[in-house]
Amino acid sequence: MKTARWRKILGWIGLYALWIALTLFTVLPIYWMFVVSSRSRVQLFDAPTLLIRSFYIQNYTGPLSDPVFQRYLLNSLYIAVGNALLVTVLALFATYALSRWRLPGADNIFFWTITNRMAPPAAFLLPLFLLYTQVFRIGNWTLFDTQIGLILLYCVFNLPFAIWLMKGIMDGIPVEIDEAAMVDGASQWTVLWRVIVPLAAPGLAITFILSLIFAWNEYLFAATLTSVNARTITTGLAEFVTVTGTNWGQMAAVATISILPALIFLVFVQRYIVTGLTFGAVKE
């Protein structure tokens, strides 16, 4: 009896020790980045401590008052919000169609959408760069280095994920509700906006937030398909290392700013992030 009880207590201690250690391991790199962002260049090369004794605010005010960096930040905001809106609306239409009509070949189309998400972006850099600079052009205007170009492009990975996520939510709304509204004389359009959208609102919000985070986080395409006007904060972060390689404090500050939106939304989406990342295959 006694040994069994001891074993149980040891089990609990082990469990907590494991999870406290894991939490520290998870938080440490991000915390360290914050610590670095609080130090001046001279303080950095003292013996490392994890304590924040003073805050070197210039690391933040420096980039934030730089017009170039301000533009990067605004671009990121426009592109992420624009893409998230576009993706949510398109996915709403698409999944409503997929779930309410029996369109011939729809299953294959549904499946085809996800193959877009699987494609390695590195393999698409070159063709997209060529298409954006040479092929998609009207006179002198090309999609290269425009915000709309990136907004459209991010649909490649956000739209499939949104469609897969929303499909499950749409299928969960009974058709009888539509039909009842239609009997009352509502048009298809009214049903979609007045009945379906309110019912699917939580799902739409999750889709919107996750798309926003993914679009905000993207680096590779933003780095290759823009040059001056449409650069985003993630490319700005990468530029820090190459251009002013030694100013680690400012780089850490920019990195901290770049993960802020994700941190803010984390509380709302943490229950759904796994669902989102597995394309709705795993629901909690």
């Binding site: 299953d107 294959n108 549904f110 499946f111 909690e284």
Partner: peptide
């Protein structure tokens, strides 16, 4: 409520 269905080609 937890539910899992593996990603699969939806067509039989």
């Amino acid at each position: 409520m937890t539910e899992t269905k593996p990603i699969q080609a939806p067509v039989e």
